[in-house]
């Protein structure tokens, strides 16, 4: 889990061009899309591409997307659960 969280942070920084950030800047429990990293709707779409490309996870609905992309931890949970949103 810890390793996955670290990997995800690195992948997020790379995929979203968060050039001025390091993995330690991202709190895995904190919401990704409220203030924090200053992410927007394109970033959300880009993260869904990341999950599909690297982990074969397809997000089907916007509701599901909101749950899975809530935080780095929720993304990791989803990957471990094999693509299911973790409530």
């Amino acid at each position: 889990m810890e390793k996955l969280v670290q990997t995800l942070k690195e992948e997020i920084i790379e995929a979203l061009n968060l050039v001025e950030m390091v993995p330690e800047d991202i709190n895995e429990e904190a919401p990704l899309f409220v203030d924090g990293l200053g992410l927007d709707s394109i970033d959300a779409l880009e993260l869904t591409v990341l999950l599909e490309k690297k982990y074969g996870i397809k997000i089907k609905t916007a509701e599901e997307g909101k749950k899975i992309l809530y935080s780095v931890k929720s993304m990791a949970d989803c990957i471990i659960a094999g693509g299911k949103a973790w409530d």
């Binding site: 995929a15 979203l16 061009n17 394109i42 970033d43 779409l45 880009e46 591409v49 599909e52 490309k53």
Partner: peptide
């Protein structure tokens, strides 16, 4: 086949 919204925009 992974079109990227961050590129397409």
């Amino acid at each position: 086949y992974f079109p990227s919204p961050a590129v397409f925009v």
